[in-house]
Each structure stands twice: as structure tokens, then as C-alpha cells.
């Protein structure tokens, strides 16, 4: 080999080391990919595939009870029908009202109780357990036992209080004007426990020096809360609020057990409608379109809230 040839094939020692490092890195990333493969496959199988399948279903006329008939592609017909379906529009309105009222109210009540508990000097542990109790109850138990009993027109304690005060009897769940509000009230009671738990943990982790310094500088309780404590709680508050809003848009069990969507359509929610159409009625295609419409709405709402929460957190 001539010196020129040798020069052509020669590589400096540093470049060879770089190539080796690249090869090693590549090898490592293959190993990583291999290790991630089971998780990716299971995610694809239990999440991506069903989601993709429901998108496909929403574009067909698939009905479980149309025996022997081939499944036809209908394009966006199911999606177009959503906006002409009075039941869907009512369910959309009810769900939006539920989410817009229940989530903020749950947060406000939760924050109030958490702050009060954080500052309590007596019975803190007792009240903490008391307020967390609803968290340990299943939704069906909450709705059936608490919801039904509390608002029972004959034996409910609320009815008794109204009667004792000489107020007229209110048919909480039986009157279309009050049914949704009653369900919101129950959701607030139930959801508050979760909010209290997280906010109380956040409050207890705040450095006390900041509040003490504010007091030394002459700030009152109220000002110290709004200017020190509340801003520090904003990151966790944003997360809680986001979860509450997303949960509220998916409301199903409370309504299903308490009113079944009635009286009339006064408490009909989108998730309940999806269940009635898809699970009970076998109308998979239309229920899929509804479920995806709900998912899109939730994603939009969550996106907007996320942007806000980032600003709050900053």
C-alpha cells in the first residue's frame, strides 16, 4: 500500500473514538427501544387501537343489533347528525353547565375548608378525617345513600329543615328546575374532599417563614393569604382545577343512579347518552361519534386551562 493509499484510509484516533461512541449510543438506544417495546405495545393495544377503532366506528353505520347486515361506511353522517339531535344538544348544554358550575364551586369550597383546617388549632385531625370521608365512598354509595336520602321528599333531612323553617317543600330531584342544581350540589360535596386533601397537603408544605415575614411587615391575614399563600398554591390549584373540570365533563354515575337523565332531559349528560346509545342501545357508530365529540371538547377545555395554568404558575 502506497503512502497515499494509507493516508486515504487513515483516520485520526479521535474520529474513530467518536464513531465507536456513536455505535455504542445506537446500540444503547436499540436496547432502550427494546425495553420500551412491551409498554408501547400494551399502550397501543389498550389505548391507541380502541381509540382509533372508535374513530373508524363513528364513520360507519355499525349497530350491534342489525344482524347479518354489512357495516357500511357513512363518512361524517354521524358527526353531522349530532348537531341536529335535540337529545345530544340538551346533553351538551347540561354537561357544560355542570362543568362550569361544579368545578369552580368545588375548588372554592375546597380551598375555604382547607385554609380553615390548616389554621385550626383544635380538632384538626378529627375534621380532616370528617372532610375526607366522602373520598372513601363509592360514587354509587354517595348517590344512592347520601343523594337519595338527603333530598328525599318524605324523610330527607333537608325536607325536614325546610318544613321546620316553614319553607315550601322543594322536590329537589323531581323538579326539572332544581334537579341539575341538586346534582351539582352533590358533586360539590363529594368532589370537595379530594380538593381539600390536596390543598391541605400543599398548604402544609409551604414554608412558614414567608407568612411570618409578611406579618412582621404589617400584612393582615387576608392580605397575607392573597399575596403570599394563594399565589404559592396556584400550581397545585391549577392541576386540581384541571382534573375537576375534566371529571365534570365526564359526569355519569351520579346522574345515572339519581335521575337517569330525567326528569325529562333535565339532567341528561353526554356520557349518559353515550352509555344509553352505545351500551344499552347497541348503536356503536353514533355513540362513538358522541364520545369523540366529548373528547374533543374536553381536550379543548383542558388545553385552554393548561395554558392559563402555566401563566398562573409563572
Amino acid at each position: 500500500m502506497s503512502s497515499q493509499q494509507r493516508l486515504a484510509t487513515w483516520t485520526p484516533p479521535r474520529a474513530a473514538g467518536r464513531r465507536e461512541a456513536v455505535r455504542r449510543r445506537r446500540g444503547q438506544s436499540y436496547v432502550r427501544a427494546l425495553l420500551l417495546l412491551p409498554a408501547f405495545l400494551s399502550l397501543a393495544f389498550v389505548t391507541v387501537y380502541p381509540l382509533g377503532f372508535t374513530v373508524y366506528a363513528s364513520l360507519t353505520d355499525w349497530n350491534l343489533f342489525n344482524y347479518g347486515a354489512p357495516i357500511a361506511f357513512v363518512g361524517l353522517a354521524n358527526w353531522a347528525n349530532l348537531w341536529r339531535d335535540p337529545n345530544f344538544l340538551i346533553a351538551f348544554k347540561n354537561t357544560a353547565v355542570f362543568a362550569l358550575v361544579a368545578a369552580p364551586l368545588t375548588y372554592i369550597v375546597g380551598l375555604t375548608v382547607a385554609v380553615a383546617l390548616d389554621g385550626a388549632t383544635v380538632g384538626k385531625r378529627f375534621f380532616r378525617v370528617l372532610f375526607w370521608l366522602p373520598l372513601m365512598l363509592s360514587s354509587v354509595l354517595v348517590t344512592l345513600i347520601v343523594g337519595r336520602m338527603m333530598f328525599d321528599p318524605f324523610v330527607g333531612p333537608i325536607t325536614a329543615v325546610f318544613a321546620a323553617l316553614g319553607l315550601p317543600q322543594v322536590l329537589w330531584l323531581a323538579d326539572p328546575r332544581t334537579a341539575l342544581a341538586t346534582i351539582i350540589l352533590l358533586q360539590v360535596w363529594w368532589g370537595t374532599a379530594y380538593t381539600i386533601m390536596l390543598l391541605l397537603a400543599a398548604l402544609e408544605s409551604l414554608p412558614p417563614e414567608l407568612n411570618e415575614a409578611a406579618r412582621v411587615d404589617g400584612a393582615g391575614e387576608w392580605r397575607a393569604f392573597w399575596q403570599i399563600t394563594f399565589p404559592l398554591l396556584l400550581p397545585v390549584s391549577a392541576a386540581i382545577f384541571l382534573i375537576q373540570v375534566v371529571d365534570a365533563w365526564k359526569v355519569f354515575d351520579i346522574i345515572n343512579v339519581l335521575t337517569g337523565g330525567g326528569p325529562g332531559t333535565a339532567t341528561q349528560s353526554i356520557s349518559l347518552l353515550v352509555y344509553q346509545q352505545g351500551v344499552q342501545g347497541g348503536n356503536i357508530s353514533y355513540a362513538s361519534a358522541m364520545a369523540w365529540a366529548l373528547t374533543v371538547v374536553i381536550a379543548l377545555v383542558a388545553g385552554v386551562l393548561y395554558q392559563f395554568s402555566r401563566r398562573w404558575a409563572q
Binding site: 321528599p153 318524605f154 317543600q169 322536590l171 330531584l173 323531581a174 339519581l258 335521575t259 330525567g262 326528569p263
Partner: peptide, 9 residues
């Protein structure tokens, strides 16, 4: 019917 009958199941 009794009060609240619309929720009678």
C-alpha cells in the same frame, strides 16, 4: 301521586 313521583322507580 306522592310528591316527587317523577323519580319513582
Amino acid at each position: 301521586a306522592p310528591p316527587g313521583a317523577i323519580n319513582t322507580q
